[in-house]
């Protein structure tokens, strides 16, 4: 199956000398949830803008749903749904009016509009609020409405720019649930940026980390963690016999340290090495009294790749009353 998003050597240059994106190449398969991560100013939004026809491409090529972004932007726009970071649903219109407007602007056949609006209101649990003006909505409801608006024309690809920015944990989890359901039930391809690494970890089939306008790594979260992190295993022994030498011989185990009867080591996957370790320990007449391990997080990968943690980068971006207004809308 051909990829539904293809970016080849994408470069975006803003005069006089800002290179926002440089030689970025990646592809997203149909039905995938693809996460685009990176610090503020790394080039995430510029890449999304190019793919959604909002920004011109300085050099390189991009195709979305089989259409060339530069040469056939109208066809691309018909195939995509975009949920921007800002809450753009109209405050003065009612929930269902916003959806009808979105349907009209995406040329949904008039006879199908009421049915689709009804379905989406149900899908996003907004039926009761459908006839209320959006200014009375909470931040989570606005975000859900925004997602519904992005889906009203049944796009092939959904672009989500920071879909859970500013939401509380409970609402964020709900949004994750919607994304998962859309992906599983409708086979929707999702291209998302996020600041929350646990979100990317839980939702995305694959992620790419972009920094300084270039993609640093791209793979599934599990492979990236395996490649850049690995589990940290801690075991306590019943006796004083030094097992360091033995542990160092176990395949994939590294960085073995000993503190009394407690050994710590790094290994790519605990479940693969653990049986070998247990067998080696018991064959030496010892017993394991305590065992624990910690899985690596995407934070570790991010730190390794970009040289800084994601949290150091939070809070940047727009610095205007508009951002404050958006945050107020999200918080309300």
């Amino acid at each position: 199956m051909p990829p539904i998003i293809e970016a080849e050597h994408l470069t975006k240059f803003y005069p006089p000398k800002t290179k926002a994106v440089e030689d970025v190449s990646f592809s997203v398969d149909e039905g995938e949830v693809f996460g685009f991560l990176g610090p503020n100013g790394a080039g995430k939004t510029t890449t999304i803008k190019m793919l959604t026809t909002l920004a011109s491409i300085t050099s390189g090529k991009a195709k979305v749903a089989g259409f060339d972004v530069a040469h056939d932007p109208s066809a691309v726009r018909r195939s995509i749904g975009v949920v921007p970071q800002e809450l753009t649903a109209d405050d003065e219109l009612k929930g269902n009016e916003n959806l009808v407007l979105a349907a009209k602007l995406h040329h949904v056949p008039r006879s199908e509009v009421p049915g689709r609006v009804k379905d989406l209101l149900k899908l996003f649990d907004l039926e009761e609020a459908a006839n209320r003006r959006v200014r009375t909505f909470s931040g989570g409801m606005r975000r859900r409405l925004q997602m519904a608006m992005g889906l009203v024309h049944s796009p092939k690809v959904m672009f989500l720019d920071e879909p859970t920015l500013g939401l509380d944990v409970q609402t964020r989890t709900k949004v994750w649930d919607y994304i998962t359901r859309l992906n599983h039930d409708r086979g929707l391809t999702v291209f998302m940026t996020t600041h929350y690494l646990e979100e990317a970890d839980g939702l995305c089939d694959r992620i790419a980390i972009i920094d300084h306008g270039a993609i640093k790594v791209s793979d599934s979260p599990a492979h990236l963690k395996e490649k850049f992190g690995g589990d940290v295993l801690s075991i306590s022994m019943s006796g004083d016999t030094d097992l360091s030498e033995f542990l160092r011989t176990v395949p994939d185990v590294s960085d073995v340290t000993r503190e009394g009867r407690v050994y710590k080591m790094k290994l790519p996957r605990t479940e693969r090495a653990l049986p070998v370790i247990i067998e080696g320990v018991t064959s030496r007449g010892l017993a394991i009294t305590e065992i624990s391990f910690s899985r690596p997080k995407l934070d570790d990968v991010f730190l390794e790749v970009t040289g800084r943690s994601m949290r150091e980068d939070e809070g940047g971006g727009q610095d205007s009353w508009v951002q404050n207004l958006n945050l107020e809308r999200q918080a309300s």
């Binding site: 959604t52 909002l54 018909r78 970071q85 800002e86 979105a102 508009v322 958006n326």
Partner: peptide, 14 residues
């Protein structure tokens, strides 16, 4: 434009 509605319009096939 400032609140992002214009961007939404610009990504629609209108």
């Amino acid at each position: 434009r400032q609140l992002g509605f214009l961007s939404t319009l610009l990504t629609a096939p209108i």
